[in-house]
Structure formats: structure tokens, C-alpha cells
Design a protein around this nucleic acid. Structure first.
Lengths: 240, 240
DNA sequence: TAGTGGTCTAGACCACGGG
DNA sequence: CCGTGGTCTAGACCACTAT
């Protein structure tokens, strides 16, 4: 009964669940079948099921609670890089007020591939959103975002005047992956005015492209006054 | 025989090996006792030993090879963040020449805690190293480093005139962990001259403090011309 | 209280690859 | 060849907690 189909049994179980989570079939908070149920489904021992689920938990894809069951976890990105850019959370933690203010909203159809570092298929309909993140009235970031409407059609009817699109998108398309590029620049006149800093002052810039299975969902550029913002990351051999 | 001493058996095995690796008692490339040997040492079943070793392998701390055994892996930091800052590797990959040039070397004894973001115990003897990283003759970074001599005494007699201290330190003290802070700044006159850029141009700055079990090993500030350098990171829910 | 995950056992067969 | 890791079993007892 020892299935040896190139991949092991626990890898098969791991992969099946991983795929369903990445597909969006299973969403954060959803319950995963119990070990006993998976035993029956796959026709293997509980140890084997346990090995797969334990590995999924170690990878941060699911969370396991006694008596309750196993559940799809929130995306890891939300707990790492997002953590330092979720202004609402940061503000709340420090007892400060947070506000998002929409500056501009328009829908464009891309004639050519994007001029940025990220390639975008031409002809895609894109929702452009510019906005400011403010903490206690101070502008922490200028956000320039593009949302691919074929990937996230609901964005067309969503009101972003006071809701930051970042968190909304995370709820729409969980378990994406992302490429981050961090760079520095000088403030031009227009950017300086929006951020409330001097022209020529230093800026810390984060570009992020979020994808789901090779489909681009959104691109965002977060432009921070260097005096107000830095990125902090902790790395160790054990957990990256 | 089911040991239940607050931590489980496989956690105990995992922790013991992890500690020996972080202590430096086990160094990269060293062989770890086989599963059968660990069974005897801990008096438990092979499955339990296997669970610990499998988890260590998943965490990237060890590598396992059939017939050969299990071995301490190279630090993960070297494969993630370090990767984008190892100028020698980057240059070699692009077929370009790399050079490190030492600018200044001195030994100081700290009277007060460091003025930087990182706290450093006073009274520590510190080796200060300033140097330039050049690729094809172009300065990619100005490095200002402090090496704690109590943590790395060999640094006192080491020649850093052409050897970049980063790689050397990695070999001396493997399996450290680190905190990174990325920020942006404007070039003052002195820095601009060293980097070969205009005064007031944008700089991308990386501060890193490397530790080993709460003991600071080194602090480094890498100052990059923003026009020449950016940090790229890939994140996904599976592996961070 | 009952269901869930957490842990552990004492075996077993297999695949791989270094000696 | 044969020691090593890779996988799997069919149980078992326990800890936790939602109900």
C-alpha cells in the first residue's frame, strides 16, 4: 500500500492543499478537513497526514488548533513586509490616528507594456489609484497603484475614497506572492508638495508587484519621506 | 517512556542541535550523528529523531544526504539578504571586476553606548573599518563597519586591505542572525566625494547588526548611490 | 464530554549513493 | 555492498478546548 508515484504520500497531500489555497478555493480562515477525514480521503495512516499538515503549518500556510481543527492562515507577506507598511496597524499600535485620502482615480487601457521595471501585458484594463497615507495628519507615504481589472474585477465598483486599496486587495486575492524593490530618490516639486517636504529631499521608495500564479494583480509604488520612514527586517538562519 | 518535560522529545533534539550550531560547536559542513546514533543517545524511536532532523532540514539549518548523513548547512542569511550585497558574487556573475579598497582602520574602546540605532555595551574594544566596494572601477558602496573584538578576536591580526570584511566574518562566525534597517539619505560633501557622486544626491543606506546569541558581532552601514543600487526581494507565503 | 491535534512507538520496506 | 535517510503503518496515550 506504499504509494510511490514519484512523489511521496505526504507530499501529495501537502501539494493538494497548497494548490487549493493558492487557487483561492480555500481562503484564509477556511477549515481544512481533519486528520481523520484526510486519512479516509487518501487512504493512508494518520502519521502521514499529520506530516503533511505539520509541514504546512511550519510553512505558515495553515494554523492548527486543538479541538478546533486546521485553518488556512493569513498570508505570510502580511506578517512580514506588509507589517511595516500597514499604516493603519502601526498607527493603532502607537495610539495615533490614521487616514487614507484618495487623490486620483481613473481607468486606463494599456496600449504598451509598462515602462516600469515590471512587464505588464498590453491591452490590460487598469485602475489607477493615487492616495496619501497620513498618521496624525502627517503624510507618511504617497501611494501610486495600478490594479489589473481582469484579475480583480470587483475593484471597478469599489469605493476607495477613504479605504486604502492595499488591505482591500489582500482580502480579495489572498495568498499572492510579491516582488519588492527598494530604492532611494530625490523629491521633485510635485512629489515634495504632496508629501509636505522640501524639493530635493531624500525619499525611500518601495515598488511591489503582487502576483497570483503568474497573473499580475497589482503594482504599487510607496514613496516615503526618508526622514519619517525606514524599513526594518529581522533575519536569522532558522526562519528567514 | 513518553517523556513529557514541558517540551516534546523531537523539540528537545531539535533545540539541542540548533544550539550547538548557533554556539559554533558545530560548524557548516560538520556531520551530525545519524538517526540511529541519536536514537541511542536520546533513547527514543527513529521516527522521533527523524521528525527533529527533518524540521532542521526544512528550516535550512542542516542538509541531509542518503548514505552520507546529515550536515550543518551554510547560513541562510548568506543565501537571502547577503546574496544581494555580495558584490564579488554579483560582479563575477556579470563578468565584471570587483575590488575592495580599505580606507581606514583603527581600534577604539567604546566609552559610551553607540549613538546609532543599535545599543552596544560600553567599554567594548571595536575595530573600525571603512572601505569601498568597486565594480569595474565604479564605487557601488561605502562600507563603514565596526567589529566587536571580544566576539571576533582574530579580526585584530587580520589584513583587510584588500579582503572585504563581510565574507571573512561569515567564515569566522557562521550562523549568526541579523537585523537590517534600510533608509534613504542625501549625500554630504565627504560621502559624495568618496562615492563619486554629487553632493545632495540620493543615497540608499543599509544598516545591519549581526548577532550571535545576544552577543553583537559586527555592525555595518553600506551606503549606496541611489542611481546605482536597489534592493530586490522576493516574498511568497510559502518560504518568506 | 467528545473531537481535535500533539506526540510517540517498534517495527517495515525502499531508494540512494559512497566505499 | 550496506549504512543512510525517506517513507509508511496501525496502533497508543495525552493535552487542549470548543461546545
Amino acid at each position: 500500500m506504499t504509494g510511490q508515484a514519484a512523489v511521496s504520500f505526504h507530499q501529495r497531500i501537502y501539494g493538494d492543499i497548497e494548490r487549493r489555497v493558492l487557487n483561492g478555493e480555500l481562503r484564509p480562515g477556511d477549515r481544512i478537513p481533519s486528520e481523520h477525514e484526510l486519512m479516509a480521503v487518501y487512504g493512508c495512516s494518520r502519521m502521514t497526514v499529520s506530516k503533511a499538515l505539520t509541514a504546512l503549518a511550519a510553512a505558515g500556510m495553515i494554523e492548527r488548533r486543538r479541538r478546533a481543527g486546521s485553518f488556512v492562515a493569513r498570508p505570510r507577506i502580511e506578517r512580514t513586509v506588509m507589517e511595516i507598511q500597514d499604516f493603519a496597524v502601526e498607527a493603532a499600535r502607537a495610539g495615533q490616528s490614521y487616514a487614507y485620502r484618495l487623490l486620483a482615480r481613473r481607468i486606463e487601457r494599456l496600449a504598451e507594456a509598462e515602462g516600469s521595471a515590471f512587464p505588464v501585458p498590453a491591452g490590460t484594463e487598469v485602475l489607477r489609484l493615487d492616495g496619501l497615507h497620513q498618521i496624525d495628519g502627517v503624510v507618511m507615504a504617497l501611494e501610486r497603484r495600478s490594479v489589473m481589472l481582469d484579475a480583480v474585477p470587483h475593484a471597478r465598483e469599489t469605493d476607495f475614497t477613504t479605504t486604502a486599496p492595499g488591505r482591500w486587495l489582500l482580502q480579495q486575492v489572498p495568498w499572492s506572492d510579491a516582488v519588492h524593490v527598494i530604492s532611494a530618490d530625490l523629491a521633485d516639486a510635485a512629489t515634495a508638495r504632496l508629501l509636505g517636504v522640501d524639493k530635493g529631499s531624500a525619499l525611500l521608495v518601495l515598488d511591489r508587484e503582487t502576483r497570483q500564479t503568474a497573473l499580475t494583480i497589482t503594482q504599487v509604488r510607496l514613496i516615503h519621506p526618508a526622514a519619517l520612514y525606514r524599513f526594518v527586517g529581522h533575519f536569522n538562519p532558522g526562519n528567514g
